[in-house]
Amino acid sequence: MKTLILSTALLALGSGAALAESHMQTVRLGTEGAYPPYNFLNDAGEVDGFEREVGDEICARAELTCEWVTNDWDSIIPNLVSGNYDTIIAGMSITDERDEVIDFTQNYFPPAASAYAAPSEDVDLTGGVVSAQATTIQASHVADSGAALLEFATPDEAVAAVRNGEADAIFADKDFLVPIIEASGGELMFVGDDVPLGDGIGVGLRESDGELRDKLDAAIQSMKDDGSLNELLIKWFGEETQTFE
């Protein structure tokens, strides 16, 4: 489950007409499409979610024509560096490891907490079995914590493993878990303390794309400045979520 999945579900963004500039550049935005509320495919099969709105707004402000592409998480970076799309907007936390290979813009999502969810309060988070999506910062964290790591290709399967008892708990982005726990009707609950991981979520780019990074950086800054980014955060993650100052 790795390589580029060129999605059918895309839109060339219609911001073009208003900003009809002569040298508009087409930028291909890579995302996963399976990580609500950050990004997911809606009923119509289009990319939707917090990052869809942020990405569209960034493109509008940077005066770029943008196109959404979905790609499997596991190979999302190799396909970026080999040029199959130009940015990654897929809930990707900024980490030192990744920063060595690709560049990030400033974060558009504040450093987020990861959390454990489990069917009961009394699970052993450092000695039990904890599931996580393979090759995420959460998976690395679980491997370090001493718990037995059970890895799944998609976050959904990792959740399913807790439901069916394969794993004692799941460790994932808290914002990903919130709607699941709400919908579970008490079957699942947060356990233990939140764990801050990473430096927030930024747009990933090739290191050789300095110019594009500056454009996107400026657009994100302007969204932070006028508060529109915070509005989107609250819209998608609720009133209690962290916002930018």
Partner: peptide
């Protein structure tokens, strides 16, 4: 790859 989860890496 697509069948069983890998445990303890």
């Amino acid at each position: 790859f697509s069948g069983f989860p890998a445990s303890r890496q």
